[in-house]
Simulated assay, not measured.
Amino acid sequence: MTKLWPYITPGIPDELFERLPGIPLSKREVRLLIISALRLRSDSLLWDIGAGTGTIPVETGLLCPQGKIIAIERDEEVANLVRRNCERFGVKNVEIIEGSAPECLKDLPWQPHRVFIEGGRPIKNMLKEVWDYLQPEGRVVATAANLENLYALSEGFAELHARNIEVVQSAVNRLETRGTNQTFAAVNPIFILSGEKLE
Rank of each mutant, 00 (worst) to 15 (best):
V30M: 03
R31T: 14
I34G: 10
I34Q: 06
I34Y: 04
I34M: 11
I34C: 03
I35G: 00
S36H: 14
S36T: 13
S36P: 00
S36V: 00
L38E: 03
L38I: 12
L38K: 05
L38T: 06
R39K: 15
R39C: 06
L40E: 03
L40P: 01
R41P: 00
R41V: 01
R41Y: 07
S42I: 07
S42Q: 13
D43P: 08
S44W: 02
S44K: 02
L45P: 01
L45I: 15
L45G: 00
L45S: 09
L46C: 03
L46T: 10
L46N: 09
L46K: 04
W47D: 05
W47A: 00
W47I: 02
W47V: 08
D48W: 10
D48H: 12
I49N: 06
G50Y: 12
A51E: 04
A51R: 06
G52Y: 10
T53I: 01
G54P: 02
T55L: 00
T55R: 07
T55N: 12
I56R: 05
I56Q: 09
P57R: 11
P57F: 10
E59G: 11
E59C: 10
T60S: 13
T60P: 03
G61W: 11
C64T: 15
C64A: 14
C64N: 03
P65E: 02
P65S: 12
P65K: 10
P65I: 09
P65Y: 11
Q66G: 07
Q66M: 07
G67F: 02
K68A: 04
K68F: 01
K68P: 00
I69Q: 01
I69Y: 08
I70F: 15
I70N: 01
I70R: 00
A71R: 06
A71M: 07
I72Q: 09
I72H: 05
E73P: 06
R74I: 09
D75W: 05
D75P: 00
E76W: 04
E77P: 00
E77K: 15
N80A: 13
L81W: 03
L81R: 06
L81I: 07
R83C: 05
R83K: 14
R84E: 14
R84Q: 14
R84C: 02
N85W: 11
N85K: 05
N85P: 04
